[in-house]
Design a protein around this nucleic acid. Structure first.
Length: 703
DNA sequence: CCCTGCGCTTTTTTT
DNA sequence: AAGCGCAGGG
């Protein structure tokens, strides 16, 4: 890539006022942002007056690195620019001011698995009509409302059917439960910040005054709350630079609105607009494919990626019998390309991109078998492992014993004789006192809720937590964590549960790994706190690789198309190019092919040198081999619109049919449930009345 | 209180 | 195919 081209230079040199940079894929937008930050500082802006916001921690980390290396020695003068994600920015604001909204300033942040527990409780014993909801469904509905800044009241008012009414009521209980625990979920971070700005002018001014320049990356993916937070922060100084590409908007399902970037000029009439269309990343044939594909989207800002790197091999399209064959061949392909290149091409040059998180399974098996090193980004990995969640639970309880979700998670892990009944009684007592379970413990000893064996176990548990809290600040956090896990006899439990020492050992490494990450956090952070570490673990993008902050190991990358946004690889495989997968079934049936096409576009434009698109004739699902139709996007890229049409029609028919059989099955199940359902309904009612009898006051909201 | 085994459901993307 | 919840035995 040459030095800055004219539009890039213009973007970098526009130092004040609103600026919209419409940057195509591979046009060097990260470079433009970092150069701009450097330029601002060279022109005398104090670094700590600059705020840059990104969507992922990875992007923030990278931007920080590049900016500091650009600035060299200069960074020491006047601090460093603040580069963070929306979420961590909001956490910082809320820690300062959230008490105005009735939350404690040491609020906990609940991640998806904590949320699920709350959702389950919120749904307990409510029924509207004969609709019911799964916790996951509820959470996605709530997420939807939250990204539209709707509270439970407004949601109930808007509810159009029983299902939504039910969800709205559960939403209220869910939100009450969160607040009662002094906890917020991910959406709340944005929502409460927005509310703080709206309700308290002082806060808005105070926060807006911290910075004179605001830069936002991936602006096409801002949702409502993010958009309004940006607007408020930049309203006074108006030095707002946003960078994005409407063709890469892939988060509409999470509330992102492309209109934010398309209507930028309406909000900031004096804004300058710069287009970056020169692509320095990919070779010509890859870009041709991308351009042809995205043209099929009608609702867009027309632009074309212009290749800087002319010539090169055309992308390959390959067909396989099933996902096992797909994985085997691709892994073999990777191996042979590495071998033939005599070490010039390395594992780290390859990426395998897919639409859904079940797809990498076959590849993992195959890569392991072929001894090719790889990493699986995101998905259910390290952070979701039971052991990791357990130790984090312990740490969270030590940091803040009122954190109910964590307390209940670990109070009997490993089993220490505090069973379900005991826990239920404790929760009921806490509820009737209107306190957290932790606070209720002394009362429970006093009034006899706890007695005998369980009382002893609980007392010992409480002592263990208190002893650990005692040590906070006196010992290193890593040391503390190690001692805590020892006191909890966690390793012994692993040895007990797993048949072989080897298995137990493998499980134990997760614990070790968290403790190591804690140690490295302590070294790196200015003022390390347990809360700070937990926050980092909760908010971090789920990239395990941030632990080895030195050299990236040379490994093949496996990730979803969504996670691939913003990245590039010399050699890319886009796998599972099939109707129902990409475009995803849901989009085929409910509309929204445009976003799927953008997703495919994002995938194609990740590739620098070679691209390989693959699909399978059939795919294993629920133990059955199901025939697949090649993705219409493949045909669109080949310029065969007619066959793309046909594929679309055939896919719709097939998926609708599958949907129909499933509906029928559900109906049959529902009928069955109605017969036994009367019984089970009675059962749950009985249970409910039992519970309320024992707790006297009945289950209040949140339980 | 804890463990096992059976049966039932499962269908996207994430900070 | 696999993970989860629940019932029943130790």
């Amino acid at each position: 890539m040459p030095d800055l081209n004219p539009p890039q230079r213009e973007a970098v040199n526009t130092l004040s006022g609103p600026l919209l940079v419409l940057a195509g894929a591979g046009s060097g937008k990260t470079r433009v942002i970092t150069y701009r930050i450097a330029k601002l500082i060279k022109h005398g802006i104090a670094p700590n007056r600059i705020l840059a916001v990104t969507f992922t921690n990875k992007a923030a980390r990278e931007m920080k690195q590049r900016a500091t290396s650009l600035l060299g020695r200069r960074k020491r003068i006047g601090g460093v620019p603040e580069i963070s994600t929306f979420h961590s920015l909001c956490v910082r604001i809320l820690r300062r001011r959230i008490e105005l909204l009735g939350y404690p300033s040491d609020f906990s942040i609940y991640d998806s698995s904590d949320q699920e527990g709350l959702a389950r409780n919120a749904l307990r014993d409510i029924r509207v009509g004969d609709d019911s909801l799964r916790p996951g469904d509820l959470l996605s509905i709530i997420g939807n409302w939250k990204t539209r800044s709707l509270g439970p009241g407004a949601a109930e008012g808007e509810a159009k059917n029983d299902r939504e009414l039910l969800a709205a009521r559960a939403f209220e209980r869910y939100q009450d439960a969160l607040k009662a625990r002094g906890a917020v979920d991910f959406d709340d971070l944005l929502l409460l910040t927005e509310r703080l700005f709206a309700d308290f002018e002082v806060v808005r001014r105070e926060e807006a005054r911290r910075f004179d320049h605001l830069l936002v990356d991936e602006y096409q993916d801002t949702n409502g709350p993010q958009y309004r937070i940006v607007r408020e922060l930049a309203a006074a100084h108006r030095n707002l630079c946003v960078v994005g590409d409407d063709d890469q908007s892939i988060y509409a399902w999470r509330g992102a609105e492309v209109s934010h970037i398309l209507n930028f000029k309406n909000d900031w009439p004096e804004a300058k607009i710069v287009y970056l269309e020169d692509n320095y990343r990919s070779i010509e044939p890859i870009l041709n494919l991308a351009n042809v594909l995205i043209k099929h989207n009608s609702d867009r800002h027309p632009k074309v990626l212009k290749p800087y790197r002319k010539g090169g091999d055309s992308p390959r399209i390959m067909r396989f019998d099933d996902e096992t064959a797909e994985a085997t061949s691709i892994v073999a392909d990777i191996r042979s390309r590495m071998e033939e290149s005599c070490g010039r091409i390395r594992a780290g040059d390859f990426a395998i991109l897919f639409r859904t998180n079940e797809q990498p399974r076959a590849f993992e098996v195959e890569l392991r078998r072929a001894k090719v090193p790889y990493k699986l980004v995101g998905g259910s990995s390290f952070y979701d492992r039971k052991e990791v969640r357990d130790i984090l639970g312990y740490l969270r309880v030590v940091a803040r014993p009122h954190d109910e979700a964590s307390l209940l998670r670990i109070i009997n892990t490993p089993p220490r004789g505090i069973g379900a009944t005991t826990i239920q009684n404790l929760v009921a007592l806490a509820v009737s006192h209107g306190t957290s379970v932790w606070e209720a413990l002394p009362h429970a000893f006093a009034n006899g809720t706890l007695s005998g064996g369980p009382a002893g176990s609980v007392r010992e548990f409480r002592r263990m937590v208190l002893a650990c809290r005692e040590q906070l600040g006196k010992k290193s956090l890593a040391e503390l964590a190690r001692e805590l896990m020892e006191a909890a006899k966690y390793k012994e439990e692993l040895e007990r549960v797993y048949p072989t020492a080897q298995l137990a050992e493998a499980r134990g490494t997760a614990i070790e790994s968290v403790i190591n990450q804690l140690a490295s956090y302590e070294e790196r952070a200015d003022e390390p706190t347990l809360q700070g570490f937990i926050e980092e673990m909760t908010l971090s993008d789920r990239d395990q690789n941030d632990k080895d902050d030195g050299k990236q190991p040379q490994v093949v990358t496996l990730m979803t198309l969504h996670s691939a946004k913003g990245l590039e690889f010399p050699h890319v495989y886009m796998v599972g190019m099939e109707e129902g997968l990409l475009p995803h079934k849901r989009s085929v049936l409910e509309g929204g092919i445009g976003e799927e096409r953008r997703l495919a576009y994002v995938g194609v434009t990740r590739a620098q040198d070679t691209l390989c698109l693959t699909f399978c004739k059939a795919r294993m699902k629920w133990g059955k081999l199901r025939p697949q139709i090649p993705s219409r996007f493949l045909m669109e890229m080949k310029g065969d619109s007619e066959r793309a049409q046909k594929a679309a029609t055939a896919a719709r028919q097939m998926l609708e049919a599958a949907d129909q059989t499933m509906k029928e099955r559900n109906e049959r199940a529902a009928e069955k449930a109605q017969k036994t359902g009367k019984k089970s309904k009675k059962k749950t009612r009985k249970k409910a009345s039992k519970r309320s009898a024992s707790s006297r006051s009945g289950p209040p909201p949140g339980y």
